[in-house]
Design a protein around this nucleic acid. Sequence first.
RNA 1: GCCCCCAUCGUCUAGCGGUCCAGGACGCCGCCCUUUCAAGGCGGUAGCACGGGUUCGAACCCCGUUGGGGGCACCA
Length: 489
Amino acid sequence: MSDVRTRFCPSPTGMVHVGLLRTALFNWAHARHTGGTFVVRIEDTDAARDSEDSYRHLLDSLRWLGLEWDEGPEVGGPHGPYRQSQRHDVYREVAAKLVEAGHAYESFSTNEEVDARRRAAGQDPKLGYDNADRYLTDAQKAAFRDEGREPVLRLRMPDEDLAWTDLVRGEVRFAAGSVPDFVVVRANGVPLYPFVNPVDDALMGITDVLRGEDLLPSTPRQLALYAALQDVGVAGGPPRFGHLPYVTGEGNKKLSKRDPQSNVDVYRERGFVPEGFANYLALLGWSIAEDRDVFSMAEMAEAFDVTRVSANPARFDVRKAEAINATHVRQLPVEEFVDRVVPFLAGAGLVADPPTPEQDRVLRAIAPMAQERTVVLSDVVGLVGFLFTDEVAIDPAAAAKNLRPEDAEVLTAASAALEGLGEWTTAAIETALKEALVEGLGRKPRQAFGPVRVAVSGRTVSPPLYESIELLGRERTLTRLTAAREAAG
RNA sequence: GCCCCCAUCGUCUAGCGGUCCAGGACGCCGCCCUUUCAAGGCGGUAGCACGGGUUCGAACCCCGUUGGGGGCACCA
């Protein structure tokens, strides 16, 4: 086991974003590759937006993807608790140390006052806080308190350039003085994210911070905080940072929280398999080899190297995600495929869960043929649904194309051929239908089997016809052929 | 406005100074296979943003331009 410790620290607000999961995946892969430790911490300091539902949903999504954590909520560990809502005492204590050592100070300025001062000095108010309260005397502080003002705590930024070697971007540097003293604890005593995040990273011994590019501009503040923390004995050195590229949607805009495309649930519900989804997520900024893009989680862990993560933003491409997923679906052992598909069929009311013995027999028989036609698991509902119902719903477009008046003769001939068929097997059905329709009617295969396919399956696209007919059984097949002939007029 | 990041086919990427008239994948287009659709096989389409340097030699290094994105809270 190496001493690398990575962490994933989401805040439980709302839905689970695909970009968030990508970040989790890379932290996981980095920890696994290095033989280190993957920590999950919940940043629920914002009581107004956090919810227990979304907390559970977050953990569930991680587990679904296959990202087991070594320390964190529900599994524990030596640095708990792993939910910030339970760590207030820790923050209070650290803040006090920082004040005592002079790294943090009480600040009474209101935003309006800061603005006014900047304007008066002929500066752009957008420059932000002006560090004016750094050297307040006790008397001045007392006077502010007498006015009824409560101070925030700000961290004193050092007067030197802040630079680090980013794991994915190389050296990044912010000039001295470009970042104002920032608030670490609110006037009401609640500590803020830019404070608790590094404090917990320090306390939990995090060595490698892999996070979204949006956090890059806040890194100088973290570095300054780390230096202060180190000075008061709370932290060792700062961690390594690696800023992961954005995951974007259409038009290179950051995939917004409101965009349905960014919600993992929609992929789960459509029947993306975790192996496939994780594989695609990994491709967003990383590649395993020059000529390969399908791999397992184990292979990713084996090969992952943060240093080789791309710095450019990646567009989330559903088509490619589907293609990768389809490959993983096809690679599943058939029994596994059947197991995974049952909930979708049951959800559509087509089979019982667990399936009855008869349903199970049919499902297992059709599975190999359905599997290679499946992109996402929910596809099977449309693909094999006709086998599990007495009444097929005929797709109107399919009927218009293949159940025209001139097709009635096909249906009649097919019925006749199948009605007295001695042996109800795929081979016998094939022979009988070819004799009756191709030779008997002189139709081209396409013209001959199209109407039959629509009659029995309701669609122009289905698993192989003869196999389907065998599984459907003689009775239901004949009923459907008759019904379709009437419909064809 | 200030600060920061990014820049190879439509998209994701390989490329880490010569072996690149740039490789793979998705998509798209053909063909083969074929009872449909897939899968599979074969082939094709399409790219180093621009301008200066450095160098014997640049997609790769440096500078600038342009373009895109992000950050500038008592949110996370």
